[in-house]
Simulated assay, not measured.
Amino acid sequence: MTAETRNTLNRRLFMGGAATVLTAAALPASAQSTFGTEADTPLDGPVRNNLSGFRMLNWQDYFPNTKNGVILADLQSRAVHYWSEDLSIYKLYPSSVPISEELTRRGTTEVIQKVENPTWRPTKDQKRLHPDWPDVVPGGSPDNPLGVRALYLSWPAYRVHGTHDTRKIGRRSSGGCIGLYNEHILELYSLAKVGTQVRLL
């Protein structure tokens, strides 16, 4: 291969990669949610799409095995990794992460329940801070902060769930949970099962 051919290929690869990033950055933003996903997150100003600075991780560094599949939520790069039990499927999704260290929990847990169109209820602290918020938002509502699907974890009140407010993805914007685009939680929901191992780091 000549130097000229290599330079042409490198330029094409670079342009193709740039086009992929620009296409991802142009994902449409949904209408604002009336209620915060889990925390009162000020998101005033123009709607911006956010991409996570993904880093590649190996499941072997965090799990002893892939029994029932594994979900790794990387809070640093704001991304969720999924590996199937037989390692034939690997997925990587941008995510929202907890808004502060006080609301962040790290460690190993598992999926204990899968819920379609989950019902959302504000916590006591959220209700105290926002008495105008409703006591409950039924599943399927376009304003439901949990989106279209939720994976409930063994830690009380912690979930991996969808969100209609796409501005939250790629940001510190939750009260502890991990949020995904609705189309991504639909896919992850179909892959994960009760018993899927989960680690937040």
Rank of each mutant, 00 (worst) to 15 (best):
L103K: 13
S84Y: 03
S33C: 00
R55E: 10
G170K: 10
T123K: 00
T163K: 02
I169A: 07
S33I: 10
D44L: 14
I112W: 04
A25F: 07
P131K: 07
A150H: 02
Y181A: 10
D132F: 06
G147V: 02
R48V: 15
A3N: 13
S95A: 05
I169Y: 00
L22T: 07
R199S: 04
D44G: 15
E110F: 14
D132N: 12
L129P: 06
L92D: 04
L22W: 05
N58D: 09
V70C: 10
A19P: 04
S30A: 13
Y158V: 05
S77I: 01
A29F: 02
V137F: 00
V136I: 12
Q76I: 09
R171S: 04
N49Y: 14
Q126W: 06
V115K: 11
Y152G: 09
R105S: 13
F63I: 02
V111P: 06
P28S: 03
L22G: 04
S154I: 05
Y181K: 06
A157L: 14
T119F: 07
N50A: 14
R121E: 12
A150L: 01
Q60K: 15
W133I: 11
S30D: 14
V148M: 14
L129H: 12
N144Q: 08
L151C: 06
T104D: 04
D44W: 08
L180Y: 00
A26V: 08
P122V: 08
A150S: 06
L200V: 09
R6I: 07
T66S: 11
D44S: 13
L103V: 06
V115A: 11
A18L: 15
L180G: 00
L92K: 09
T104V: 10
G179P: 10
G17Q: 09
Q32H: 15
M1N: 07
R12C: 08
I89E: 11
R105Q: 13
